[in-house]
Design a protein around this nucleic acid. Structure first.
Lengths: 168, 168
DNA sequence: TTCAATGCAAATCTTTTGCAATGGG
DNA sequence: CCCATTGCAAAAGATTTGCATTGAA
């Protein structure tokens, strides 16, 4: 079970290039246009790992090209979601976060309400159990979302963080 | 495993009265005031079962007292949540839904993306597994949220519904 | 040249808040 | 009476959209 930090970890260039190429392919398959702005946003997004809010992304994007605004970031993010390269998530604080669908196939989240740290985890038994329960209800699962809200057990681990502005 | 419909099922009077009394107790314990509006909102809320949006609640409340507006409904709903009688939920469509915390202790949701029907379910094995995974990560769970998004397997069951306005 | 994409500001949508008027305790 | 509550409208915060301009193909 991999635990991945929420913090800004820079991805290496080859990873970013691969994502960029995949997005390009999607854009072209749709007959859309490749633009400097889209390139910038996609690069910056995949260089920043983790659960990124629009605000965070825009801030970083503006450091490359200050003329890019919210509208373009939102629009590009929608394309990224549509392309399947990115997933939108909403934890309880009313603003969307975006996460690259990377090597790590599917995972769920543990969200610390004290420090905002987000742990990722996944477990095959969990999926199997969900499938079983769905079947019992005549339901077919397309996707799911599981979030555990709580707190880090190790205080030292916890107090070093401090995000999570709103109520969760 | 109980499957409860989202549809407006009217609750019987004694149930509503019980909830109203509990709310009254909360209000008084806080030194707050009982008002006609709060009474109306609480009664209407508990008479409507299911996952109710603010808009839906206000619509019904206005049929009793058209002068009541969003502000009072929001404020009363917050009190209900604070009192522990009601839980706030957010599925993917960007508006909050409220659900009475009733006899049914805890449960999770299966949301049909075709018709908007919401099935409730719960399973002890699921909880145990979550606890185990949290422990492995040095995490203490306060609460969790599990949502399965998908579709009803029985088309007849499904097509009879049609809610879910936004994208989920 | 053509039509999609951008940038900005204005519009929307949900939820919150300020404040004068109302009304419980 | 006093101060919490209400109702309305205005504010706030996130996201979307209209439209003239820009720029890929």
């Amino acid at each position: 079970m991999a635990v991945v930090e929420n913090r800004t970890q820079l991805a290496d260039d080859s990873f970013v290039k691969e994502k960029e190429a995949a997005f390009l392919e999607f854009i072209q398959s749709k007959g859309l246009k490749t633009t400097r702005q889209r390139g910038t946003i996609v690069q910056v997004f995949f260089r920043l790992r983790g659960h990124i809010s629009v605000e965070e992304l825009l801030r970083e994007v503006k450091r490359v090209n200050p003329r890019i605004g919210y509208a373009t970031v939102y629009r590009t993010l929608h394309l990224l979601v549509e392309s399947g390269l990115v997933e939108e998530r909403r934890f309880g604080d009313g603003l969307a976060r975006y996460e690259g669908r990377n090597e790590v196939e599917h995972h769920d989240h543990m969200i610390c309400l004290e420090c905002g740290k987000i742990r990722e985890f996944s477990n095959p038994g969990l999926l199997a159990l969900q499938e079983k329960l769905a079947e019992e209800n005549g339901f077919k699962i397309y996707r799911h979302r599981l979030e555990l809200y709580g707190a880090c057990e190790d205080p030292a681990d916890c107090k070093s963080h401090q995000e999570m502005k709103g109520r969760a």
